[in-house]
Nucleic acid binder design. Structure first.
Lengths: 131, 131
DNA sequence: ATCGGAATGAGAATCATTGTCAAGTCGAGC
DNA sequence: GCTCGACTTGACAATGATTCTCATTCCGAT
Protein backbone atom coordinates (compact mmCIF):
# COMPACT_ATOMS: atom_id res chain seq x y z
CA UNK A 1 0.00 0.00 0.00
CA UNK A 2 2.07 2.83 1.29
CA UNK A 3 5.09 1.02 -0.04
CA UNK A 4 6.30 3.01 -2.99
CA UNK A 5 8.99 0.42 -3.56
CA UNK A 6 11.53 3.15 -4.24
CA UNK A 7 11.93 3.04 -0.48
CA UNK A 8 15.62 3.21 -1.26
CA UNK A 9 17.43 1.57 1.58
CA UNK A 10 20.91 2.87 1.24
CA UNK A 11 23.34 -0.06 1.64
CA UNK A 12 25.67 1.40 4.22
CA UNK A 13 28.44 -0.39 6.07
CA UNK A 14 26.29 -0.59 9.17
CA UNK A 15 23.25 -2.04 7.46
CA UNK A 16 25.38 -4.55 5.66
CA UNK A 17 26.92 -5.56 8.97
CA UNK A 18 23.50 -6.07 10.55
CA UNK A 19 22.30 -8.16 7.63
CA UNK A 20 25.49 -10.22 7.68
CA UNK A 21 25.20 -10.83 11.41
CA UNK A 22 21.63 -12.03 11.01
CA UNK A 23 22.52 -14.34 8.17
CA UNK A 24 25.45 -15.87 10.00
CA UNK A 25 23.53 -16.39 13.16
CA UNK A 26 20.44 -18.07 11.81
CA UNK A 27 18.42 -17.76 15.00
CA UNK A 28 16.18 -15.13 16.46
CA UNK A 29 18.21 -12.41 18.10
CA UNK A 30 17.32 -9.21 19.85
CA UNK A 31 18.63 -5.85 18.72
CA UNK A 32 20.84 -5.74 21.78
CA UNK A 33 22.34 -9.13 20.96
CA UNK A 34 23.10 -8.12 17.40
CA UNK A 35 24.71 -5.00 18.74
CA UNK A 36 26.89 -7.10 21.03
CA UNK A 37 27.90 -9.43 18.23
CA UNK A 38 28.89 -6.57 15.97
CA UNK A 39 30.82 -4.83 18.67
CA UNK A 40 32.63 -8.06 19.53
CA UNK A 41 33.51 -8.52 15.87
CA UNK A 42 35.10 -5.11 15.78
CA UNK A 43 32.30 -3.56 13.74
CA UNK A 44 31.41 -0.47 15.66
CA UNK A 45 27.76 0.21 15.05
CA UNK A 46 25.60 2.39 17.26
CA UNK A 47 22.77 0.77 19.13
CA UNK A 48 20.24 3.18 17.66
CA UNK A 49 21.45 2.26 14.22
CA UNK A 50 20.99 -1.42 14.89
CA UNK A 51 17.43 -0.77 16.01
CA UNK A 52 16.72 1.35 12.95
CA UNK A 53 18.29 -1.15 10.57
CA UNK A 54 16.31 -4.05 12.03
CA UNK A 55 13.04 -2.16 11.85
CA UNK A 56 13.72 -1.13 8.29
CA UNK A 57 14.56 -4.69 7.33
CA UNK A 58 11.46 -6.00 9.03
CA UNK A 59 9.30 -3.41 7.27
CA UNK A 60 10.88 -4.37 3.97
CA UNK A 61 10.05 -8.00 4.69
CA UNK A 62 13.69 -9.02 4.53
CA UNK A 63 13.69 -10.33 8.08
CA UNK A 64 11.05 -11.76 10.36
CA UNK A 65 10.29 -10.10 13.65
CA UNK A 66 8.42 -11.62 16.53
CA UNK A 67 8.22 -11.18 20.25
CA UNK A 68 9.92 -13.62 22.55
CA UNK A 69 7.94 -14.90 25.49
CA UNK A 70 9.66 -12.22 27.54
CA UNK A 71 8.18 -9.62 25.24
CA UNK A 72 11.37 -8.48 23.55
CA UNK A 73 11.46 -8.00 19.80
CA UNK A 74 13.70 -10.58 18.14
CA UNK A 75 14.74 -10.76 14.51
CA UNK A 76 15.82 -13.48 12.12
CA UNK A 77 16.72 -13.80 8.48
CA UNK A 78 14.12 -16.06 6.90
CA UNK A 79 12.85 -17.41 3.64
CA UNK A 80 10.48 -15.21 1.68
CA UNK A 81 7.39 -17.36 1.80
CA UNK A 82 4.82 -17.00 4.53
CA UNK A 83 5.58 -19.37 7.37
CA UNK A 84 5.58 -19.72 11.11
CA UNK A 85 8.21 -20.69 13.66
CA UNK A 86 8.88 -23.49 16.05
CA UNK A 87 11.38 -22.03 18.48
CA UNK A 88 13.36 -23.68 21.25
CA UNK A 89 12.96 -21.51 24.27
CA UNK A 90 16.31 -22.67 25.66
CA UNK A 91 18.79 -22.53 22.79
CA UNK A 92 16.77 -20.51 20.31
CA UNK A 93 16.98 -23.13 17.56
CA UNK A 94 14.31 -22.32 15.02
CA UNK A 95 12.41 -24.42 12.52
CA UNK A 96 10.30 -22.78 9.86
CA UNK A 97 6.99 -24.54 9.47
CA UNK A 98 4.12 -24.12 7.07
CA UNK A 99 0.51 -24.87 7.81
CA UNK A 100 -1.74 -24.33 4.84
CA UNK A 101 -4.63 -25.63 6.90
CA UNK A 102 -4.05 -22.99 9.51
CA UNK A 103 -4.01 -20.24 6.93
CA UNK A 104 -7.27 -21.49 5.51
CA UNK A 105 -8.79 -21.85 8.93
CA UNK A 106 -7.94 -18.35 10.10
CA UNK A 107 -9.41 -16.86 6.96
CA UNK A 108 -12.57 -18.93 7.34
CA UNK A 109 -13.00 -17.92 10.96
CA UNK A 110 -12.46 -14.27 10.14
CA UNK A 111 -14.98 -14.42 7.27
CA UNK A 112 -17.50 -16.14 9.45
CA UNK A 113 -17.44 -13.19 11.84
CA UNK A 114 -17.38 -10.53 9.15
CA UNK A 115 -13.77 -9.54 9.65
CA UNK A 116 -11.77 -8.30 6.70
CA UNK A 117 -8.17 -7.31 6.05
CA UNK A 118 -7.06 -10.22 8.17
CA UNK A 119 -3.60 -11.00 9.47
CA UNK A 120 -2.46 -13.45 12.07
CA UNK A 121 0.45 -14.36 14.26
CA UNK A 122 1.34 -17.91 15.23
CA UNK A 123 4.43 -19.03 17.05
CA UNK A 124 5.19 -22.34 18.69
CA UNK A 125 7.60 -22.48 21.62
CA UNK A 126 9.08 -25.61 23.11
CA UNK A 127 12.23 -27.34 24.24
CA UNK A 128 14.22 -28.99 21.47
CA UNK A 129 15.63 -32.50 21.63
CA UNK A 130 19.16 -31.43 22.53
CA UNK A 131 18.07 -29.18 25.37
CA UNK B 1 2.66 -29.72 37.95
CA UNK B 2 4.04 -26.86 39.99
CA UNK B 3 0.50 -25.88 40.75
CA UNK B 4 -0.24 -26.93 44.29
CA UNK B 5 -3.75 -25.60 43.90
CA UNK B 6 -3.68 -24.30 47.46
CA UNK B 7 -2.20 -21.24 45.83
CA UNK B 8 -4.53 -19.32 48.11
CA UNK B 9 -5.19 -16.01 46.44
CA UNK B 10 -6.50 -13.84 49.20
CA UNK B 11 -9.56 -12.01 47.89
CA UNK B 12 -8.64 -8.48 48.87
CA UNK B 13 -10.47 -5.31 47.97
CA UNK B 14 -7.82 -4.48 45.37
CA UNK B 15 -7.90 -7.86 43.65
CA UNK B 16 -11.68 -7.80 43.58
CA UNK B 17 -11.56 -4.36 42.01
CA UNK B 18 -9.20 -5.52 39.29
CA UNK B 19 -11.36 -8.53 38.51
CA UNK B 20 -14.49 -6.41 38.43
CA UNK B 21 -12.89 -3.87 36.11
CA UNK B 22 -11.88 -6.64 33.71
CA UNK B 23 -15.32 -8.19 33.72
CA UNK B 24 -17.08 -4.90 33.09
CA UNK B 25 -14.79 -3.91 30.29
CA UNK B 26 -14.85 -7.06 28.20
CA UNK B 27 -11.93 -6.10 25.96
CA UNK B 28 -8.20 -6.42 26.22
CA UNK B 29 -6.75 -3.74 28.47
CA UNK B 30 -3.26 -2.96 29.67
CA UNK B 31 -2.30 -2.82 33.32
CA UNK B 32 -1.96 0.93 33.03
CA UNK B 33 -5.46 1.26 31.60
CA UNK B 34 -6.96 -0.84 34.36
CA UNK B 35 -5.13 1.30 36.86
CA UNK B 36 -6.63 4.43 35.26
CA UNK B 37 -10.12 2.98 35.29
CA UNK B 38 -9.90 2.06 38.96
CA UNK B 39 -8.50 5.42 39.91
CA UNK B 40 -11.24 7.18 37.94
CA UNK B 41 -13.85 5.06 39.72
CA UNK B 42 -12.50 6.19 43.06
CA UNK B 43 -10.92 2.84 43.87
CA UNK B 44 -7.41 3.74 44.85
CA UNK B 45 -5.18 0.84 43.93
CA UNK B 46 -1.43 1.08 43.51
CA UNK B 47 0.01 0.47 40.09
CA UNK B 48 2.31 -2.27 41.36
CA UNK B 49 -0.66 -3.98 42.86
CA UNK B 50 -2.54 -3.89 39.58
CA UNK B 51 0.44 -5.46 37.84
CA UNK B 52 0.73 -8.15 40.49
CA UNK B 53 -2.97 -8.89 40.48
CA UNK B 54 -3.07 -9.23 36.70
CA UNK B 55 -0.07 -11.53 36.67
CA UNK B 56 -1.53 -13.66 39.40
CA UNK B 57 -4.83 -13.87 37.57
CA UNK B 58 -3.09 -14.76 34.34
CA UNK B 59 -1.04 -17.43 36.08
CA UNK B 60 -4.18 -18.83 37.65
CA UNK B 61 -5.76 -18.96 34.22
CA UNK B 62 -8.56 -16.63 35.22
CA UNK B 63 -7.67 -14.06 32.60
CA UNK B 64 -6.00 -14.21 29.22
CA UNK B 65 -2.87 -12.22 28.53
CA UNK B 66 -1.43 -11.41 25.17
CA UNK B 67 0.79 -8.76 23.66
CA UNK B 68 -0.70 -5.99 21.60
CA UNK B 69 0.96 -5.20 18.31
CA UNK B 70 2.79 -2.43 20.18
CA UNK B 71 4.26 -5.04 22.50
CA UNK B 72 2.39 -4.13 25.67
CA UNK B 73 0.84 -6.85 27.79
CA UNK B 74 -2.95 -6.66 27.69
CA UNK B 75 -5.42 -8.66 29.75
CA UNK B 76 -9.01 -9.79 29.34
CA UNK B 77 -11.51 -11.84 31.29
CA UNK B 78 -12.22 -14.95 29.23
CA UNK B 79 -13.87 -18.31 29.32
CA UNK B 80 -11.94 -21.13 30.94
CA UNK B 81 -11.35 -23.32 27.95
CA UNK B 82 -8.32 -22.95 25.75
CA UNK B 83 -9.08 -20.67 22.84
CA UNK B 84 -7.66 -17.95 20.64
CA UNK B 85 -8.78 -14.48 19.72
CA UNK B 86 -10.08 -12.71 16.68
CA UNK B 87 -9.52 -9.05 17.44
CA UNK B 88 -10.69 -5.99 15.53
CA UNK B 89 -7.69 -3.78 15.16
CA UNK B 90 -9.89 -0.70 14.97
CA UNK B 91 -12.47 -1.01 17.75
CA UNK B 92 -10.89 -3.81 19.77
CA UNK B 93 -13.94 -6.04 19.60
CA UNK B 94 -12.87 -9.57 20.48
CA UNK B 95 -14.28 -12.93 19.48
CA UNK B 96 -13.09 -16.09 21.16
CA UNK B 97 -12.47 -18.85 18.66
CA UNK B 98 -11.53 -22.48 19.03
CA UNK B 99 -9.51 -24.50 16.59
CA UNK B 100 -9.02 -28.08 17.68
CA UNK B 101 -7.29 -28.77 14.38
CA UNK B 102 -4.74 -26.08 15.11
CA UNK B 103 -4.01 -27.50 18.54
CA UNK B 104 -3.48 -30.92 17.02
CA UNK B 105 -1.36 -29.54 14.26
CA UNK B 106 0.97 -27.58 16.52
CA UNK B 107 1.53 -30.60 18.71
CA UNK B 108 2.20 -32.79 15.70
CA UNK B 109 4.70 -30.34 14.25
CA UNK B 110 6.48 -30.01 17.57
CA UNK B 111 6.65 -33.78 17.99
CA UNK B 112 7.93 -34.23 14.50
CA UNK B 113 10.91 -32.03 15.33
CA UNK B 114 11.52 -33.49 18.76
CA UNK B 115 10.28 -30.52 20.70
CA UNK B 116 8.66 -31.02 24.09
CA UNK B 117 6.95 -28.87 26.66
CA UNK B 118 5.21 -27.06 23.85
CA UNK B 119 3.12 -23.92 24.00
CA UNK B 120 1.85 -21.70 21.24
CA UNK B 121 0.40 -18.29 20.60
CA UNK B 122 -2.12 -17.56 17.88
CA UNK B 123 -3.97 -14.32 17.42
CA UNK B 124 -5.98 -13.14 14.44
CA UNK B 125 -6.29 -9.44 13.73
CA UNK B 126 -8.72 -7.89 11.29
CA UNK B 127 -11.30 -5.20 10.76
CA UNK B 128 -14.78 -6.10 11.98
CA UNK B 129 -17.96 -5.57 10.00
CA UNK B 130 -18.93 -2.34 11.73
CA UNK B 131 -15.54 -0.73 11.25
C1' DA C 1 35.33 17.08 -6.17
C1' DT C 2 30.84 18.88 -4.59
C1' DC C 3 26.24 19.13 -2.64
C1' DG C 4 21.89 17.74 -0.49
C1' DG C 5 19.65 14.61 1.70
C1' DA C 6 19.79 10.27 4.08
C1' DA C 7 22.23 7.84 7.79
C1' DT C 8 24.84 7.61 11.94
C1' DG C 9 25.94 7.68 16.95
C1' DA C 10 26.35 9.22 21.75
C1' DG C 11 23.60 10.05 25.10
C1' DA C 12 19.29 11.68 26.98
C1' DA C 13 14.49 10.69 27.29
C1' DT C 14 10.53 7.66 27.48
C1' DC C 15 7.74 4.14 29.06
C1' DA C 16 6.25 -0.25 30.66
C1' DT C 17 7.37 -3.24 34.06
C1' DT C 18 9.66 -4.95 38.26
C1' DG C 19 11.93 -4.51 42.80
C1' DT C 20 12.10 -2.60 47.60
C1' DC C 21 10.56 -2.40 52.08
C1' DA C 22 7.99 -0.26 55.69
C1' DA C 23 3.22 -0.04 56.86
C1' DG C 24 -1.42 -2.03 56.43
C1' DT C 25 -4.77 -5.90 56.15
C1' DC C 26 -6.73 -10.55 56.59
C1' DG C 27 -8.42 -14.27 59.13
C1' DA C 28 -7.55 -18.22 62.17
C1' DG C 29 -7.32 -19.01 66.88
C1' DC C 30 -7.95 -17.43 71.59
C1' DG D 1 -13.76 -8.95 70.09
C1' DC D 2 -8.54 -9.07 70.14
C1' DT D 3 -3.80 -10.73 68.70
C1' DC D 4 -0.32 -12.39 65.88
C1' DG D 5 2.04 -13.76 61.82
C1' DA D 6 1.79 -14.11 57.10
C1' DC D 7 0.24 -12.23 53.06
C1' DT D 8 -0.55 -7.66 50.62
C1' DT D 9 -0.19 -3.18 49.58
C1' DG D 10 1.69 1.21 47.81
C1' DA D 11 4.92 5.00 47.04
C1' DC D 12 8.91 5.32 44.83
C1' DA D 13 13.27 3.84 42.99
C1' DA D 14 15.38 0.96 39.65
C1' DT D 15 15.65 -1.54 35.52
C1' DG D 16 15.79 -2.36 30.74
C1' DA D 17 14.28 -2.11 26.14
C1' DT D 18 13.25 1.09 22.74
C1' DT D 19 12.92 5.78 20.83
C1' DC D 20 14.29 10.54 20.28
C1' DT D 21 17.58 14.39 19.46
C1' DC D 22 20.61 16.67 16.76
C1' DA D 23 25.20 17.66 15.33
C1' DT D 24 28.28 15.18 12.42
C1' DT D 25 29.26 11.97 8.71
C1' DC D 26 28.51 9.33 4.58
C1' DC D 27 26.45 8.09 -0.01
C1' DG D 28 26.01 8.72 -4.66
C1' DA D 29 24.28 11.41 -8.47
C1' DT D 30 25.89 15.57 -10.86
Amino acid sequence: MTNTDDSALRPTRQRRAVVAALQECGEFRSAQEIHEVLRAAGDNVGLSTVYRALQALADAGQVDMLRSEAGEAVYRHCSDSHHHHLVCRTCGRTVEVEGPAVETWTRAVADEHGFTDVSHTLEIFGTCASC
